[in-house]
Amino acid sequence: MLECKGVSRLAGHREILRGVDLPLEGGQVCALFGPNGAGKSTLLKIMALLTRPTRGVVLWDGEPVRGRESKVRQQLGIVSHATYLYNNLTAEENLYFHGRLFGIPRLRERVEEILEKVGLYYARRDTVGTFSRGMQQRLTIGRAILHEPRVLLLDEPYTGLDQQGQAFLNDVIRDFRNAGGACLLISHDLPDAVALADKFIILSEGRIVREGSCSDMTAESFDNIYREALEVDRESGDAWAIQFRGEG
């Protein structure tokens, strides 16, 4: 469905991404892992058509998106680091606003339905500024699926969610996949994400260092693969610390 091919991205002189190929297919959840600063969010933003790659292309159904961005955007649901919500508007109004931008028919019913689904119906008339981070995150997820997209791009979507919220999000992702949608999931909760996903991709310093299927993968075996892929010294543990040692 959505695919990026040979994507590189320069920020000044840093190569944040180096020749990444990532096809997203319907009915599949693809988990994207990697240490902080690996370029995961940048990759997601490129696929969300928020940033252009320096080299390479983003394809939609095999054709470059260039020139038909708005048609593709109609099919994307996005949860990013920031919530993209207006603090001064109520939950209902935020959804209503996005629904109108996406041209959703029978919007009132759809907004009510989504508010029920994300468990914020009781707070629909409260301004988002008064929400806890977890409530805002629920609303953000609701906003992402409001227009029934075919692709979900989720960047650390569990941020701020409580246990119920996490379970709810897992349900949303599963339902979405079962309905034939394609999902890209960036997460730092490896065991959970591996259990949920169909395939995984490990990104390090802008390159894909490992990819494969998640079936028959246990938490331990994946942990090993992850560590091995990042060449992480088992004692020192944290890939992040090592990545920055060279700077000293």
Partner: peptide, 18 residues
Amino acid sequence: MSERVNDALQGLVISPID
């Protein structure tokens, strides 16, 4: 400034509007 809180302007950018 109100568009910068929560990166709200990005919410407009991801939408299909012109």
